[in-house]
Design a protein around this nucleic acid. Structure first.
Lengths: 255, 255
DNA sequence: CGCCTTCTTGAAGGATCTCAAGAAGGGTGG
DNA sequence: CCACCCTTCTTGAGATCCTTCAAGAAGGCG
């Protein structure tokens, strides 16, 4: 099992080492983590609200949303997680889920026991540090989402979300154009931006007509990255992606 | 200096120990942290956007907001911090600020050097764990704020905010009534809820007329807690406050 | 007392929602 | 390969919540 998990754990490790500095031994510890693969269909809860979990989920393939809810039953997606993310890494120190995680598409996850994550963190303080740092990036993204739904209009909200996802998917936008897979319905986009699916539809039409971006089937086509960035008032610094090697941080001394 | 900081650090320690288990020695380490007191007037930045800080701020007295911004210059408050909070504890592992911190009222803070916090965390893994855990609570609150501005109407947004602050201030609501100091302008409330100050004003009028809650001068009077909770669709579980002693968590073994 | 911030209220306009219904798309079984 | 079904997308028309603009009242502070 450990062997077939290696490629998936490698993606998680890549994520960690994009912001944190880990020694070879520490990297081995990550790659040696045990994990149980599982699949979830669209609309299926991966973690229920209030559940006390004993493992964290590594998203291998697919798309996961963090959901909040109205008493009306209206749903709000407060975060979207993509392949390589660990949506509930925080559960290692706070096992009671304060919001639900649900698959937005057919999704494969790897359940990694808290015990293993905690052992790794205890044995290698730099790993604990890297985990903590990932959680702070998550929080920075959440904070931007508050700004997005709080004080931008529909065009800007959707553009901003597309920009964020393009960067997180590492889409190559240098030419001004880019395409990436995004199996989200307009309903989902509405839940994520605090809009109705009807208004999402009308807004996407505007983006399409202006030659900025279009969604067709399950993929996003960005036609004019600069225009999309401007329309979404996007500044990706908060994502802390694409850090130069020398910018990466390590507080803890080598063991 | 250490001595006069003790009462302030004690509040921070109380916060930590409300969710985490720390030994006497670890508690001493927190109380022994050095700190430099500073004051900030309303509208003054405590941390600038993009700044790389070398200390974290303990909020001693007053009120601090985490600010996001529009290109229009419209501001969005994505978090409100109160006395005893550490608004940028996350800077210990992510020193580059992805959003600004600004005083919402005359505020006293204690600047605690990263070096001291990191040493404490390195020497006592349970302290690192407690710090990390506090950051996850912050993230849980941010997630709820996305829900609040994303899918609730004005009455619910403001009610929810008042409920959250009442709980965080540990206001005694058992009788159904409560009062607490909240030196926020209606403009600030608007920035926090994604509404204009004009509409905040009209909404507060409704809450007042319905006998739910009223703001007068610098304090909030809650007249009917249950009605406020219902109007704000408030479920305070996410705040992880008032944990029973046996619910508190400690992963790390004693040193 | 006077100034400046904050609060309050009115009227009109705009962004988004609701309701509704038809079109398009993707998957499945015959 | 076609027919069918169900989800998703698309578009229209009217309603609603919230904003904008404006101006006066109230409140705190020197």
């Amino acid at each position: 099992m450990t062997l077939q998990n290696q490629p998936n754990l490698q993606r998680f490790l890549d994520r960690l080492t994009s912001r944190s500095v880990l020694s070879d031994e520490e990297q081995e510890a990550i790659l040696g983590l045990p994990g149980l693969a599982a699949q979830a269909e669209t609309h299926r809860d991966i973690v229920h609200l209030g559940e006390v979990v004993d493992h964290a989920c590594l998203l291998v393939e697919g798309l996961v949303g963090r959901f909040g809810q109205n008493t009306n039953g209206e749903r709000q997606i407060t975060a979207i997680y993509i392949s390589g993310d660990m949506p509930d890494l925080h559960s290692v120190v706070s096992p009671r889920a304060t919001s639900a995680l649900q698959a937005l598409a057919t999704t494969t996850i790897l359940r990694i026991p808290h015990g293993a994550l905690r052992s790794a963190a205890a044995r290698y303080p730099a790993i604990a540090e890297a985990f903590w740092r990932e959680c702070t990036v998550d929080a920075a993204i959440l904070s931007q989402w508050v700004v997005n739904v709080g004080c931008r209009d529909a065009k800007a909200r959707i553009s901003h979300l597309l920009c964020e996802l393009a960067v997180r998917y590492k889409a190559d936008v240098r030419s001004g154009e880019a395409t990436f897979l995004l199996p989200l319905t307009q309903e989902h986009l509405g839940d994520a931006t605090g809009l109705t699916s009807v208004h999402v539809n009308r807004t996407l039409k505007v983006l399409r007509e202006r030659g900025v971006a279009s969604l067709r089937g399950r993929s996003v086509h960005i036609h004019d990255w600069d225009a999309l960035v401007q329309m979404g008032e996007f500044d990706g610094t908060y994502l802390q992606a694409d850090m130069e090697p020398e910018e990466r941080i390590r507080i803890v001394q080598a063991v």
